[in-house]
Design a protein around this nucleic acid. Sequence first.
DNA 1: CGAAGTCTTGACTAGACTCAAGTTGGGTGG
DNA 2: CCACCCAACTTGAGTCTAGTCAAGACTTCG
Lengths: 260, 260
Amino acid sequence: MDFSLPIIVSAPPQISGDPLARLVMRLSAFERLGQEEISALRSIVTVDVVEAHENLHKTAGPYVTVLLSGLACQYKMLSGNRRQILGLIVPGDVSHYGFLTGDAAPAQITSLAISQVGRISIADFTELCQRYPRIMRAIIRGMATAAAISKERLVTLGQRTSVERMSHLMCEMNYRLDVVGLVGPGNTFEFHITQAELADTLGLSTVHVNRTLQVLRRDGLIAMRQGKVSVDNLPGLIGAARFDPYYLLQSTMITPPTVG
Amino acid sequence: MDFSLPIIVSAPPQISGDPLARLVMRLSAFERLGQEEISALRSIVTVDVVEAHENLHKTAGPYVTVLLSGLACQYKMLSGNRRQILGLIVPGDVSHYGFLTGDAAPAQITSLAISQVGRISIADFTELCQRYPRIMRAIIRGMATAAAISKERLVTLGQRTSVERMSHLMCEMNYRLDVVGLVGPGNTFEFHITQAELADTLGLSTVHVNRTLQVLRRDGLIAMRQGKVSVDNLPGLIGAARFDPYYLLQSTMITPPTVG
DNA sequence: CGAAGTCTTGACTAGACTCAAGTTGGGTGG
DNA sequence: CCACCCAACTTGAGTCTAGTCAAGACTTCG
């Protein structure tokens, strides 16, 4: 475990600037939000810092939680030291819906890097959604996107080769991080995940992840070192992954039922 | 558990007896329902028959649909004639939530065997849930169970060997079909799925599915022929699968938010 | 400087895939 | 009623992707 106290953090943009910026960008990708809505949202979010490799929800309770910076994942342990990472959570993603999804057995969620987590009480969240239907619609669109990502992950684990798995994941990350403004010039982004964690995500061994990354590097598609990914040939990467971004584009406008 | 409700079920239970029996059993597993609730449910369901290997939702529209008999699956196609079956749908399962899940890009759903499908208009469904909170809670518990099954499938595809995949699936089917009264004496149940379809479900090749079934057969765990499975050694099967039914037991009582 | 975690490499193994050739079984039509 | 047909199932042989084991190199940090 890492017990360092990262007071001043320069390079990683995580702990600087406006903590809610990513969430606002994410929601704005679905619905155009006004200043009043954004202010209302800001006023009900409490921000906590979570160190790397800690449970994201130390304080259980009736809250909706959102990842604001860093990286997290949901996972399941198996007998024999095996682990499957069910999904990666990036800034702007809702990490826990409280009771809203009726998930009786919430999977474990841990941070992979130092992160900021936003917390909203269920009461405040409900009121926000009732008062600002655009925010509610954006949240619902976010849920739909998460479900689509989860389905695509089944395809990855069931059908794709190691090169396809890796490049598909990188394409997805590139897209998801771009939406929240975390892809820099030259298609570079922070991705603080170890090769062992990538292995647990992709259903591969650590050694094979290493070799797969070497192949992609050798082919000039991506390079990854020290938690930084640079996509050197995006069309090539998309081709290697047979990546079809359709599943990420929740283009349908969903009309929620008029409650009451 | 009380399995004694159903009518007389002879060889093909599919198209005989009360079509809604499985749905009622499924909901009753979560919440004890009264006669009034069951009658109200019956009065708003339209039943259609769907042949094997047909799209389950020929008539799109604002409906919640439920599988009443038979077998169905949700799937995704890939380039190169590959297919991943995302999940199996058994009698009593909701096969489509309409807009309720905000699923903008609904995956394709097809029947695997001749089936009966129940259709409920969104308006009727909403009113039913508002009038009978126990039904609403049961539906929510069902959604939670479906989500848990989907997560477990990620573990299967990411981590388990072929023998574990197959035996885990069989354990799950045994459990899910038992809940709706479709497991007969000696742990036998109808499972009208081809080995090629099993392959697409488990992320294996058809040939390997065949050989895996032979192993399980040789070890006296299960036998499968002509769409009928008999579990000959359930503890052994559970052991081979390292099956932990915890994920199927939505034991937590979920209190939905008081709307309005 | 030492320690721990991470990454890299090599050698070998094994589980699963592909291809190809049968076999079985149920359904259909003559 | 039988012959045929097609889909599903089975088997064998050979290949290959990915896993395992083990050792060593690189980083980071105390």
